[in-house]
Write a protein that binds this DNA or RNA. Structure first.
Lengths: 132, 132
DNA sequence: TTGAGTGCAAACTATTTGCAACTGG
DNA sequence: CCAGTTGCAAATAGTTTGCACTCAA
């Protein structure tokens, strides 16, 4: 996903500030929120540029990205709770046979003041075909 | 997410067939793939209708949905591997303080022929504010 | 001076929706 | 018959990209 085919980076006030914002908050802001926050300082800032810089920062490994968008929803006829393996080579998604750990929800509840209803666990790597 | 505000459902050949397809495969097809597969049987079928029916089936609890799309990407200045809690009430995302279980990757590798690079674990529920 | 960065607008992709016609119970 | 379902096309929403201009090294 985050290849290192980008060769050289220069400094830019915008990118520096985006990184600063992300390093100084425990929020997990969206691109739009970052954009809004920066508009006061850079009135001409464009949202496209925020996206560009976020991608560069991810590429550089300086931030990480929690993807909830940009790809496909997948549908599953099996409604029992189970975990998935996602191949980063071919994109295939496989059900995993390891047991569902309901106890994890409890563990989180013990450490927080949240009510936990369910969790989602996905493993990423290469499937048999893509390993060869 | 999947409220039960939908009152009554009728049968439809299209929806029945979509469910059949999902129940009979271990793939995790996208809406488009299901659409393509059904086009031979229902040449006039529209993609919009596939989406509508998939949402209804999710609403009915007959299938489940692995969301990779449809919402926002979130960015995180903390690149150490850690888990997240996502509030289903207000959408806020919090870092969790429970330890990162690298051992899970090994466990999956022992049970499969896959190479596992990393995993992602998210808990869903209500945060303190939304509980009141 | 030169190629990385920028703003802008248009393009793209996945998904949703309004509408008039249709159909199953 | 009537509310749920459909196809179609247009609309949305988040993200990416082409282009001409700018700026940092």
């Amino acid at each position: 996903m985050a290849q290192n085919n980008h060769k050289k980076y220069r400094n830019s006030k915008q990118r520096t500030k985006i990184l600063e914002i992300l390093k100084s908050t425990k929020d997990h802001p969206t691109a739009v929120r970052i954009y809004e926050q920066l508009r006061t300082e850079f009135p001409a800032l464009s949202l496209g540029n925020v996206y560009r810089n976020l991608n560069i920062l991810v590429e550089q490994g300086q931030i990480s990205e929690l993807r909830f968008g940009s790809t496909f929803d997948r549908y599953d006829g099996d409604i029992r709770p189970h975990y998935h393996f996602i191949c980063e080579g071919c994109g295939s998604i496989e059900d995993l046979d390891i047991e569902h750990e309901d106890v994890l929800n409890k563990k989180v509840e013990e450490n927080t003041n949240y009510k936990v209803n369910h969790h989602r666990l996905e493993f990423y790597g290469q499937c048999e075909n893509c390993l060869q």
